[in-house]
Design a protein around this nucleic acid. Sequence first.
DNA 1: GGCAATAGTTTGTGATCAAATTATCTATGC
DNA 2: GCATAGATAATTTGATCACAAACTATTGCC
Lengths: 228, 228
Amino acid sequence: MTKTTLHSASTSDAVVPVHEQVYQQLRDRILFGGFLPGKAVTLRGLADDLGVSAMPVREAVRRLIAENALELHGNRRVFIPDLSEKVINEIWSARRLLEVELALMALKNLSDDDIQSLQDIDERIDVSLETGDVEGYMRGNYEFHFYLYSQSKSEVLIKLVRNLWVQFGPFMRLVYGRSGTANLEDQHKQALEALKSRDQRALRAALEADISQGMGFIQETICLPDKV
Amino acid sequence: MTKTTLHSASTSDAVVPVHEQVYQQLRDRILFGGFLPGKAVTLRGLADDLGVSAMPVREAVRRLIAENALELHGNRRVFIPDLSEKVINEIWSARRLLEVELALMALKNLSDDDIQSLQDIDERIDVSLETGDVEGYMRGNYEFHFYLYSQSKSEVLIKLVRNLWVQFGPFMRLVYGRSGTANLEDQHKQALEALKSRDQRALRAALEADISQGMGFIQETICLPDKV
DNA sequence: GGCAATAGTTTGTGATCAAATTATCTATGC
DNA sequence: GCATAGATAATTTGATCACAAACTATTGCC
């Protein structure tokens, strides 16, 4: 058990509430595979884990439930969602719909500096892939996609997409934890080429391939009967 | 096969927690125009208003903030969002993207009984339009759309769309409160015709017209300089 | 008379506590 | 040996309180 201590930053004058810090930490852990799908969490357990009282955890958890990052069952217990194949397919098509749209919108606003930034992120992803750093890869992948999407300047759509990402986050870790990062093809290279040449059709194809790779892996893992 | 199962199927006598009831009431008020855009709400105020303590309100409000139905400012105060024209346009295009997709998916599963149910809802909408019952119209409109979308069986997309509706709910009331329901054309008639004839193209056109009418009204109202 | 400092009020935040609910463990009967 | 019922432990839920930040209105000063 890792006990993390939350302390207010002494240098920053902006006081960020504890429930906000708890929210960020929990969302990060969910997004990047800190929890296993289907596992139950308790308020007191999380509170002890994070070194805070139960109250801020309550608010953060309530928020994460609303964002589909956590699931509240009829028993009043909170779970990491264990998605069915059907739901995975729904997320898959929703991602295709929304993220392609976001990427195309972003392409219009994208500067050369932005492309360079994306390339930098992608190089860090390559390093993570080589060293087998699963969490590093997941963080890099998230950063790559949302850096691109942020250039669309469409905060509304971005929030919806983030809503999807927190749902399959725990599964991504499962997939990579099982099959490793070795046989992962970096689909971002083609996306970068499409961005450089301002090719909408190629960008759409690259993104759909990238999404299909990720969600396809998840779908295969779901169908396996064995559990960890 | 003996008596009752202990742990799983005890949903019959489901006791609904107070924070859940508060959430539903507040969401309804937001969806159907019970609050004005830009207005601040207070936890104690809402608690007194609903006749409950502050704690359940805190949880419900935190949840609504996560769903973009309420807005948490840096002052830590909670507001009904006052959307800019830019955000309205983002919601507009997001609605077009998602709701057309949902309607087309629903069309595949739609039975004749479903179409009859939609027609019944639409007749109630007509009554509301004639009597100038703004809230009745808004509830009927919501019911019509989400009955249709529910037949898509895509819970994930539906949640995303509901996330959009709570955002423009307060503005709809502003629009209809200002211009009345008299000059509202019922766009659902064309949608119903398209559903009956299973015409995808016509359905898309009808839905886009319906969405454009609503969001167009909002956009016009936004641009007006006067405030209530 | 206008502006800034200040006191009083309001409000969100976090902690603590009691009651209700659910899960887990244990013992008992068949 | 297995299932069921009761007892115990763990957890959520809702209420209350203390505190700090923010807002309002007043007062005092130039």
